[in-house]
């Protein structure tokens, strides 16, 4: 029973990774950029929630909307201000990466100045009770995490497969040049992709704050990195892949913590990344792309 409890806890944690991983995966699919700043978007979402809930004292239902709006805007703003010029000029990949890194450092230091570098505690929000059945005992928040992530994924799948915008996204990701020729406004699609990815991260941020009620300006580093590992594990560019990778990573991390070691758990996560990249760089559900000679 303990094992199943740990498994569910892992899935709960993995749900958060999955939601963040989706953003990495979608952006990478469209502009082939590891958006280093994506992890920090979660941090931004966390602080947005904190400001509304604790400082402004808004009711929960209203406060929860704040990170979604703020993150969505932040994602679009980052794309406009930092990446767009490079993307339209077809800049070298290394320049894009360094810019993304710059944005990440900027956000962290900005929030350090605004809120100081020490951690802030979030008040309890929802699902704090414990669900018990037989020997099984998990918090409701864990179950909420899983349900919300599944709902979000289904929604995203529908957006991508059933709507015009989704089809345009797929086309842009397949071949941006051709998509442009077919009359797709790729610029707009890129913005939408950043917005959707950031909104998913905002949902992840709310769930994270509810499960682990502490935020600080550097929280996005490790969280973002792990979510990225999840995206690579599942196959970057693939939506179901990002979800699968997120769940797998969450479970693996939880089981490592529970049964092996807590001290070097993060090292284990990176070891997983390294093994995946070496054995199957396209990930579990990704497509293999080879350079044409």
């Amino acid at each position: 029973m303990d094992f199943i409890t740990q498994l569910l806890n892992g899935l709960g944690l993995g749900s958060i990774y999955a939601l963040i991983a989706l953003g990495y995966s979608m952006v990478y699919g469209i502009v082939q950029l590891i958006n280093f700043a994506h992890g920090d978007i979660i941090m931004v979402g966390g602080y947005a929630l904190y400001v509304m809930l604790v400082i402004a004292g808004m009711p929960l239902w209203l406060a929860v909307l704040a990170p979604i709006v703020v993150c969505g805007l932040a994602g679009v703003l980052i794309e406009r201000l930092a990446y767009q010029r490079l993307l339209t000029h077809n800049a070298e990949r290394i320049s894009l990466l360094i810019t993304a890194l710059g944005v990440s450092i900027f956000l962290q230091n900005l929030f350090m100045l605004l809120f100081k570098s020490d951690a802030k505690t979030m008040p309890p929000m929802f699902g704090s009770g414990v669900f018990e059945l037989g020997g099984l005992s998990v918090t409701y928040s864990t179950l909420i995490n899983i349900v919300v992530s599944v709902v979000m994924m289904i929604g995203l799948q529908m957006l991508v497969n059933r709507t015009k915008i989704g089809k345009a996204m797929q086309a842009t990701s397949e071949d941006a040049g051709a998509a442009k020729l077919m009359g797709i406004n790729t610029n707009k699609i890129i913005i939408i992709t950043f917005a959707v990815g950031s909104i998913l991260a905002a949902v992840g941020a709310v769930l994270y704050c509810n499960t682990y009620p502490q935020i600080k300006p550097t929280m996005g580093n490790l969280l973002g990195l792990k979510a990225f590992v999840a995206a690579v594990l599942g196959g970057i560019g693939s939506i179901p892949g990002a979800m699968l990778g997120g769940y797998l990573l969450g479970v693996l991390e939880q089981l490592t913590k529970a049964y092996i070691t807590t001290e070097v758990t993060d090292a284990v996560v990176f070891a997983i990344l390294i093994v995946v990249l070496l054995v199957r760089p396209a990930g579990l559900m990704g497509k293999n792309r080879k350079e044409k000679v």
Partner: peptide, 9 residues
Amino acid sequence: SIILICVML
């Protein structure tokens, strides 16, 4: 970070 971004841009 701002200098870094501007230089890249």
